[in-house]
Amino acid sequence: MNFLKKFGIPIATLIVFCLIWEFIVWINGWPNYVMASPSDLGPSFLKFRWLFLEYGWDTLWRTVAGLLLAIVFGVVVGMIMGFSRTIREAIYPLLVGFNAIPKATVVPVVALLFVGQHDLNTILIAFMISFFPITVSISIGLSTLEPEYRDILLSLGASRFTIFRKIALPKTLPEFFGALKVSVTLAFIGTNLMEIVEPHGRGLGHLFDSGKISADYPLMFAVLIALAIMGIGLYYVVIVLEKIFAGWADRDVT
């Protein structure tokens, strides 16, 4: 029953969603260049299955690399901002300003900065678009630590590092994972932005672009679905990590 609830219901929802999609396309009589239907996707996936695997892998590892970079950078900057009010106030406007710039406009800048370094460029955009939520969550988590926690450990003679390790770090984990869920999807957007806007022959973004150029509309839809599947997959990886490292914050689990 539990298994059915956990996996059966989401899968059934997906099937119903596809049926409705198929039905809407069918009843309107749309040709596949207006709106592809789920039944068009299967042949597309089959026809380009090796490209999907190869390019899917490119997109996935670049996204994960950008995300890891965002985690390292976000945690370090978030920590500094969380512990020093002066630094927080000093760099907040800078961060917000940077985050407000549409990343599509940064793509050509980065592409020119590191001409030909396609992997690096793609990872950089994934990183730039996804670090902000992590930075903010860590800095808020640390700066809102109740002073009593600190006092209890300080009065026992604990060092600042001990306080960070025993209290600040674990206490911030739920906020961190909350931000990471947002960042995962953002990182995918970043990767594909680079792959589509600056095509360089690799990644699912490039496959999408090829579909557009060759007017293969079902292929374009298939790429979107492949991206969605990868996004869901990575999201659930984060959920599993969260359960392992911050499961205590989930009040429903007894």
Partner: peptide
């Protein structure tokens, strides 16, 4: 002149570590 570990403290907020 510095914190001494012969002291134990409790506050209005129990500040237990939830994890």
């Amino acid at each position: 002149t510095s914190p001494r570990n012969i002291v134990g403290m409790a506050f209005q907020n129990p500040v237990l570590l939830e994890w």
